[in-house]
Design a protein around this nucleic acid. Structure first.
Length: 638
RNA sequence: GCCACUGUAGCUCAGUCGGCAGAGCGGCUGAUUCGUAAUCAGCAGGUCGGGGGUUCAAGUCCCUCCAGUGGCUCCA
């Protein structure tokens, strides 16, 4: 860069600066906003993240990056990963670092190393603490390729990454207190920024190491201060307490037995919730023109050869041999729906033909993937198959998108859409897939929804719009799905006679709204933290007589509530009233009603509405009307 | 399925060096009849995940199988 060439730096708010030869991004930004300079962990130079130590060599635009900026956040995560790598190498000298990227909610670093143990991790934490205390700077160096190769000669993984750097690009490394890592950067200025780094856990990652041993992954999350980390840990502890497996046990919603891993047992309380959800969906089915069907759970192998499951889904199917013939337990409802459609000639006048089926499905999920209700081997979807003409596709899917949004609003669930396209192992021709993918994409765009494209994640027979919701720890789970299928109708030879008298093949929209009862109840349990909306609560009203003298009156109120279609029960008077109130609170009963002399005398009730921690007096009629209204309207709060 | 870890009463967990199986909550019984988040006392409750091995002796050490947890892969 020619000495003396005038450089102008454009800053946010229209400010500008003329840097001297000694100036860095950091010094320019600090002069521009001295009061906020402590928060700047990197800069954005011409739209690209750079170190604070970067020296602009030409005119350009510059903005600061802080932990609150997504890019700044990512830089801190990535620097945290470097810190972990440094600590691991210090602890286990022959560990080979591979990659350590930021993720949606933190970072990880994969190592080619013997399996790690908890004591290793303690040592790693201690080494990290030493680095943080020592305030080690992240120093960038740009190297000739050969020198970089020499530097990482012991580490085949790094050599591979060096080879992947495009010819024109520089190879850069970062030094941190004697540890050097291949890295594009940028980084936070020094390890002081990493005092809030936290290791979440370790596990095996993919097997890409040359010896075939799995890489060891250390996951973590970084914060610039201890206080922010403490806040995060507190939130996380609350999230763990919301785990549906814990609440499901405590509230006796469901259980699992060792004898049938992955097969949920629905207990009476859980079944109440399932039935209410079923009703929620079924009411809609009627008004939206669906018919219900029930088809067999088992089909001969030939059916799955037709559907394509045998070729593309076999490893996930339970198979039984009956009288020498192979039968498969259905993992999806589509074959049954296809067979019904194809059972007689069909007219275009029957379309769209909407066939709903809530049948148990069996999927042989790998043992290591089972996860409470969120990943099971036996499940029931709120499933339907809609047979449509080409023209009917868009209107049908519009209705479905609106319906899904409305359903999520009822549950106050945050959700995101994902467009999943043709997977590597799939049926049919590329042209069909492109057409179907294009239709789904344009409908999503038209709906104004934000969505993520997920290449290659579609079903083997169709691309799909998936709905994702997150569990208490932020892990995403797919619930609803809308799939546009041109393949199965062809393979089953389905046809309808059109107004033109000719035979046509329908398209099929496979769809669920809530997904499966299992996963939806799991996610919802965590979302509401066991505080069920009144319409879903297994027990809606708990009546507590102050003494035995008030038991009769309590039963009378309970009967009145039951007659009105509510789930009400009397809590015996053996324990003290405060204790019974405590029990009801812990059970998260939405309405706790206390009846004593006063209430019996004047026909009122003393109601403790969940979340208020205090009692409200009202007339019985008023109370019943309130609860009924909340329940009928499916209000979220009591 | 892969890697690591975990498995003791219904639940949450203690159990030291290999030497008689423990607590709290819950349950049952009795007393208490109580006004908005825990009344008191007593009692019952265990193939220490299953199987095998080492040992005079195994909850404890070894092997193996099963299940669960966290990830990986995969998926609603």
């Amino acid at each position: 860069m020619a000495a003396g060439a005038p450089i102008r730096i454009r800053l946010p708010d229209g400010a500008s600066a003329a840097p001297g030869p000694e100036d860095t991004v950091g010094s320019v930004l600090a002069r521009w906003a001295p009061s906020k300079a402590a928060e700047f962990l990197a800069g954005l130079w011409e739209g690209q993240p750079v170190d604070l130590g970067f020296r602009p060599a030409a005119s350009g635009s510059l903005a600061p990056l802080t932990f609150s900026d997504r890019k700044g956040w990512e830089i801190l995560q990535h620097s945290s990963a470097h810190l972990v790598a440094k600590a691991v190498v210090e602890t286990i000298p022959d560990a080979l670092p591979t990659v350590g990227p930021p993720t949606d909610d933190g970072f990880y670093y994969d190592f080619d190393v013997r399996p790690l143990t908890p004591p290793d991790l303690d040592a790693v934490r201690a080494a990290m603490a030493r680095s943080v205390k020592a305030r080690e700077a992240f120093v960038r160096r740009e190297l000739p390729r050969q020198e970089a190769e020499r530097l990482f000669a012991r580490n085949p993984h790094k050599l591979r990454y060096i080879a992947e750097v495009p010819a024109g690009e520089v190879v850069s490394v970062y030094d941190t207190g004697g540890f050097t890592d291949l890295c594009r950067g940028p980084h936070v200025p020094d390890t002081r920024w990493l005092e809030g780094v936290h290791i979440l856990g370790f596990s095996a990652a993919e097997t890409t190491a040359p010896q075939g041993r799995p890489l060891q992954r250390i996951r973590g999350v970084g914060f610039p201060t201890r206080e922010l980390l403490e806040q995060y840990l507190k939130l996380r502890a609350e999230a763990v307490a919301r785990d549906h497996r814990t609440i499901g046990q405590r509230q006796e919603l469901f259980l699992f037995q060792e004898a049938v891993p992955g097969f949920p047992f629905w207990l009476p309380n859980g079944m109440v919730i399932v039935r209410e959800l079923e009703r929620f969906v079924t009411e809609h089915l009627r008004s939206a023109g669906y018919s219900e069907i029930r088809t067999p759970l088992l089909y001969a192998r030939s059916v799955y050869e037709t559907s394509g499951h045998w070729e593309h889904y076999r490893e996930n199917m339970f198979v039984s041999e009956i009288e020498g013939q192979e039968f498969g337990w259905k993992p999806m409802n589509c074959p049954g729906a296809m067979l019904i459609f194809g059972s007689r000639p069909r007219s275009y006048r029957e379309l769209p033909l909407r066939l709903a089926e809530f049948a148990p499905l069996h999927r042989l999920e790998a043992s290591g993937t089972l996860h409470g209700l969120l990943r099971v081997r036996e499940l029931v979807q709120d499933d339907a198959h809609i047979f449509v003409t080409e023209e009917q596709i868009a209107p049908e899917i519009r209705v479905l998108l609106a319906w899904i949004r409305q359903a999520c609003a009822t549950f106050r669930l945050a959700y995101s859409f994902e467009l999943s396209t043709r997977p590597p192992s799939s049926l049919g021709e590329a042209a069909d897939w492109e057409k179907a993918e294009g239709t789904l994409r344009s409908l999503l765009v038209e709906s104004g929804a934000e969505f993520r494209a997920s290449a290659g994640e579609g079903a083997f027979y169709a691309p799909k719009i998936d709905i994702h919701v997150k569990d208490s720890l932020g892990r995403p789970w797919q619930t609803g799905t809308i799939q546009l299928d041109y393949q199965m109708p062809k393979r089953f030879g389905l046809q309808y006679q059109g107004p033109d008298g000719a035979l046509h093949t329908p398209a099929v929209v496979h769809r669920t709204i809530l997904g499966t009862w299992e996963r939806f109840v799991g996610v919802l349990t965590e979302h509401v933290a066991g505080r069920w909306p009144p319409w879903l609560a297994p027990v809606q009203v708990r009546l507590l007589p102050v003494t035995d003298r008030h038991a009769e009156a309590s039963r009378a109120v309970a009967e009145e509530l039951s007659a009105a279609g509510l789930r009400a029960g009397v809590g015996g008077s053996d324990a003290t009233l405060p204790k019974r109130i405590r029990e009801a609170e812990l059970e998260r009963v939405p309405y706790v009603v206390v009846l004593g002399d006063k209430e019996v005398a004047d026909g009122s009730v003393s109601v403790r509405i969940r979340g208020t921690r205090q009692s409200t007096s009202m007339s019985r009629a008023e109370f019943v009307a309130r609860v009924l209204d909340r329940v009928r309207r499916r209000e979220f709060d009591p």
